[in-house]
Design a protein around this nucleic acid. Structure first.
Length: 426
RNA sequence: GUGGGUAUAGCCCAGAGGUCUAAGGCGUCAGGUUGUGGCCCUGAAGAACGAGGGUUCAAAUCCCUCUACCCACCCCA
């Protein structure tokens, strides 16, 4: 027997209502903020991510699915969505569009990692990018949009973490200061942190080890070491967020894993603290376009993990719209009736009535049982008696009312009830 | 890549060396008389107990290896 590959999963019919719900909320919020959808390929030139995400990041170092196609091109299954969107922006000359260009995407991403709760090898990301605007009001809008999305999903008790990690000018200075601060404690830090001290100093700040956290709490704070421009940007952003009524929590330990972030970084986390709990995050990446070979272009964005969102929807027991059942089930008895039923089912579907034709060879009782479990609103019963008289039995499964009606009136009656919202029995 | 846990029918799970040719629940299917659902009752199908090796007279139950899944770390959505 085959099984789905490690870290992948089937999204079964029973789960589809969650996905549909999330997708609809996303489409709605994007429309509300003026974002237009873009879909990029599932695979890209591997170099795009090496340049974009960062040579030294774990994503590039050990998590990308890289392969060579038959033509010898080095390709990779996309591990994230921002670099491809930027590539598309550059490739299609979107700098000619009125700035900022607002794009959103929804699709699969791939990372070769050990699967665990909230982390899969194939996962779904939703994200959006606002390209071409330096103003902190844009940052505020991007943060606001993410926040509003979660609210519209019905989520409660979320935390909005915010930080600024500076720019090309001030970050190196800050990093040196940070490294110096930690140099006094390298002996006491965990092994991971000693490595981080060498290679990824910023990451020292969000170590999960309580020992290390003591030191990071007292470490120099990035937002207190910004250059004048970055500081002004951060202050304005905070002011705007305040105007929007967003409860941002400034957290100097919030650093994001991708190299391209500058200035603003933010994350949205659920109340229930757990591993892999971050629902989404984003930030500004003013240097990325240039990194990818374009003109310097300020931009920022946000990305969310759909699986994590759905996990939280379930955990919080939030209501999602159920799937809609077919309107009609046709039960029939006998050869002649079956012929009539086949014909009728075709006509009804063409008229827009969702119809299920009963499987053959079942007793009427069994057919009704099936109609019941399918939660259809109406069952149509067709036997020899009805064929003779040109009528049909129409049974309302909710009220158990059953009427003998002429076949000629059937469509009219069904159409009149087709648009009623509550069409599911039980 | 590192550590821990788990592995019995489609799903949930009982089972702690012989009484297991493996129990129960959900679901599925079929009946409860003649053409009628949801509740109830009855019955049926469906598992060589993850795979492979041991130990033993005897293993779903003990040991080893592997694999998969889950959880945590690393990292991230």
């Amino acid at each position: 027997m085959f099984r789905s590959p490690r870290g992948t999963s089937d999204i079964l019919p029973a789960d589809q209502p969650y996905w549909r719900f999330v997708e609809e909320k996303i489409a709605r919020i994007c429309q509300l903020y003026g974002y237009r959808r873009i879909d990029t390929p599932l695979f890209e030139d591997a170099g795009l991510f090496i340049r974009g995400v960062g040579e030294e990041t774990d994503i590039v170092q050990k998590e990308m699915y890289v392969f060579e196609d038959r033509g010898g091109n080095k390709l990779t299954l996309k591990p994230e969505g921002t670099a491809p969107v930027c590539r598309a922006y550059l490739e299609h000359g979107m700098h000619n569009l009125p700035a900022p260009v607002k794009l959103y995407y929804f699709g699969k991403s791939y990372r070769y990692e050990r699967p665990q709760s909230g982390r899969y090898r194939e996962f779904h990301q939703f994200g959006y990018e606002a390209i071409g605007d330096v103003d902190p009001a844009m940052d505020a809008e991007v943060v606001d949009m993410a926040w509003q999305l979660y609210l519209s999903l019905g989520m409660q008790q979320l935390h909005l973490k915010l930080n600024s990690i500076g720019c090309k000018t001030c970050r190196p200075v800050y990093l040196a200061r940070l490294k110096e601060y930690f140099s006094a404690y390298t002996g006491e830090l965990c092994q991971d942190c000693r490595n981080r001290w060498e290679k990824n100093t910023l990451r020292l700040l969000d170590c999960k080890n309580p020992f290390c956290q003591k030191y990071s709490a007292a470490a120099p704070k990035s937002y207190e070491n910004l250059c004048p421009d970055c500081e002004k940007h951060f202050n304005q952003l905070k002011e705007y967020l305040d105007l929007l009524g967003l409860p941002a929590e400034i957290d100097h330990c919030l650093v994001r894993g991708l190299d391209y972030y500058t200035r603003t970084v933010f994350e949205i986390q659920p109340e229930i603290e757990g591993a892999q709990s971050t629902l989404g995050g984003g930030g500004r990446y003013d240097g990325l376009m240039e990194q990818l070979g374009g003109d310097p272009t300020p931009a920022l964005g946000f990305a969310a993990g759909i699986e994590r969102i759905i996990t939280n929807i379930k955990r919080q027991n939030l209501a999602v719209p159920p799937e809609v059942s077919p309107l009609l089930f046709i039960a029939c008895l006998g050869e002649e009736a079956r012929k009539a039923a086949v014909k009728m089912s075709g006509n009804l579907r063409q008229a827009g009535i969702s119809t299920i034709l009963s499987p053959a060879g079942k007793s009427l009782k069994a057919q009704l049982r099936q109609a019941n479990t399918l939660s259809v609103r109406y069952t149509l019963i067709l036997g020899d008696n009805e064929i003779k008289t040109g009528s049909v039995q129409l049974r309302d499964m909710l009220t158990s009312e059953q009427k003998d009606i002429p076949q000629s009136q059937l469509l009219e009656i069904l159409l009149a009830n087709n648009s009623k919202p509550d069409s599911g029995a039980r």
